[in-house]
Design a protein around this nucleic acid. Structure first.
Lengths: 120, 120
DNA sequence: TCAATGTCTCAAGAGTTGTTGAATAAATGA
DNA sequence: TCATTTATTCAACAACTCTTGAGACATTGA
């Protein structure tokens, strides 16, 4: 993740519909969802509007797509999300570890019950 | 951190100058830096331009300011950054813990040498 | 009090972004 | 082949964002 990619990702996430799509896909898991189903979840947004936002997200690298019959399935690009988090907090510890451990703890909290390798 | 705050924070981070300011302040530590010094670090951006971006960042909650004599000192709002990371990845584990542990690991990597409470 | 320093505010203009509706394209099944 | 379903592309327009330059405000030291 370089600055250019991070800027594109943050721009993608700074729009209400797109942020909701990303969060929906994050919880939907690796299998993803077809564009139509995502559109319905966005209080029935028009197809051209969905297409605009989905392609914006795909170009930013935050989601991936694949065709399945007539549908196009979109899914969260988890490595890109990890990379963005890492980019944002990179160098946060330069002499001040107390500053970023809360961020780690907050993020780790959602994984703790499942696995305990957060410090790997 | 709610959706509105997250949108504002992502919008703030989606602009090159502002992203650089945030990363500069993150590494600068809690003491922060005066506006003028930040401007010099942004290849000498004009004072009105810096003021525009700094107040944008302050409104989004990502940085804080305080006056010190003639200078105004800006510093990173670390809790807001933690909150944003947490918001972005919230619910990432719903049945798929393998999906977010890389993000935790990436973030924890920068803290590991200092402290080992990343799983707290 | 006055000049200098550091920063903010404001208005104007160029550029960018998001929505809409109509048209297009790809895949499927009758 | 033809109608249907699913999704994309395009042009136009309104709304928003960023930069610039001029001016104003707050603080300090002479």
């Amino acid at each position: 993740m370089d600055e250019k990619q991070a800027l594109s990702a943050f721009a993608a996430l700074s729009q209400e519909t797109r942020l909701r799509i990303v969060r929906l896909l994050v919880t939907a898991g690796p299998e993803g969802m077809p564009a139509g189903a995502i559109g319905e979840a966005m209080d029935g947004a028009s197809s051209s509007r969905m297409s605009f936002h989905l392609s914006h997200l795909e170009q930013s690298g935050l989601v991936a797509s694949r065709r399945d019959g007539r549908s196009i399935i979109y899914s969260a690009a988890y490595p890109a999300l990890s990379g963005l988090v890492e980019f944002l907090m990179r160098d946060c510890c330069q002499g001040h570890p107390e500053v970023c451990t809360p961020a780690v703890a907050a993020l780790a909290a959602c994984c703790v019950s499942a696995k305990d390798n957060a410090h790997a």
